[in-house]
């Protein structure tokens, strides 16, 4: 097995309060291999989004990284200075955010939102950016005319596919998806995840997929980590987490899933 794309080592993150701290992430370690689809599951507030934001150093005060390392391709993200950090973002780690409706800048055209990435990182001209943007949109089945549109003129599912296309603009090594489909209906959600999976196999990037929906995760991921109150309590193969969870909390999570849903997933897993 080659060196992991992402390696989180003994990461602890606190939210600093006026007189005491809230320990959001407690001594978490995990690796994501090249091309791997890795899922991080847990209830809201368990620290999984905090980890996602910390990987691209997007966490805001009062979040504070107390200990640990975040290695992307062997380089500690926490050591990057401001310039190096700007360069690192999006070229190595791109991110899809929770709210599909709200992650595109409402006052810029889709084209401008491709162009600012391509210009900043690759120095492309407007003309070159447009060509590249058209190719990228084609990957997610969106017609090139959409480049002229503003976000509000596109549906929620379309917007999230556009975000994914922007994510792929620089061929990142890791794609982080923080609850990327919660705002979308089930059909669109499924379409998008399938498309991502196909692109992953084509382009070879790894994925860190974050959701509270363990069932959905079991369908798409290679490996799954389960978080409880800031701790990573179990990491394993998707199949093992599904069929033979070892930690009591993972068992409880499965037990809390609606029956009907559980049966469905079982059926699909065998497909």
């Amino acid at each position: 097995m080659s060196a992991p794309v992402l390696s989180v080592r003994n990461l602890s993150i606190d939210y600093v309060g006026e007189d005491s701290d809230f320990h959001a992430v407690k001594d978490v370690s995990f690796d994501i291999a090249k091309g791997e689809f890795f899922g991080l599951a847990g209830e809201s507030g368990c620290g999984k989004s905090t980890i996602a934001f910390a990987i691209a150093r997007l966490h805001q005060p009062s979040a504070l990284i107390r200990r640990g390392e975040i290695l992307v391709e062997g380089r500690n993200v926490l050591d990057l200075d401001k310039k190096a950090l700007e360069k690192f973002r999006w070229t190595e780690v791109a991110m899809v955010f929770q709210s599909a409706m709200n992650s595109l800048n409402p006052v810029l055209t889709i084209e401008a939102q491709f162009h600012d990435v391509l210009k900043t990182h690759l120095g492309l001209s407007r003309e070159q950016s447009r060509k590249r943007a058209e190719e990228l949109l084609a990957l997610v089945d969106i017609p090139a005319e959409r480049l002229k549109s503003f976000p509000h003129q596109c549906s929620g599912g379309m917007r999230q596919r556009i975000v994914i296309a922007i994510c792929l603009a620089l061929n990142p090594k890791l794609l982080i998806m923080d609850e990327p489909t919660t705002a979308l209906d089930v059909v669109v959600q499924r379409e998008i995840l399938q498309r991502i999976d196909v692109l992953r196999k084509e382009l070879g990037f790894s994925i860190l997929f974050i959701t509270h929906d363990l069932g959905l995760m079991a369908q798409v991921c290679d490996r799954i980590g389960v978080m409880l109150e800031g701790e990573l309590v179990e990491v394993g193969d998707a199949r093992q987490i599904h069929t033979a969870p070892t930690h009591p909390y993972t068992k409880k999570l499965w037990a809390s899933m609606p029956r009907l849903r559980g049966a469905q997933i079982g059926g699909e897993a065998s497909l």
Binding site: V16, G17, E18, D19, P61, S62, L64
Partner: peptide, 8 residues
């Protein structure tokens, strides 16, 4: 609220 954060 952020004073302690800044100090740390």
């Amino acid at each position: 609220r952020l004073n302690r954060w800044k100090m740390l």
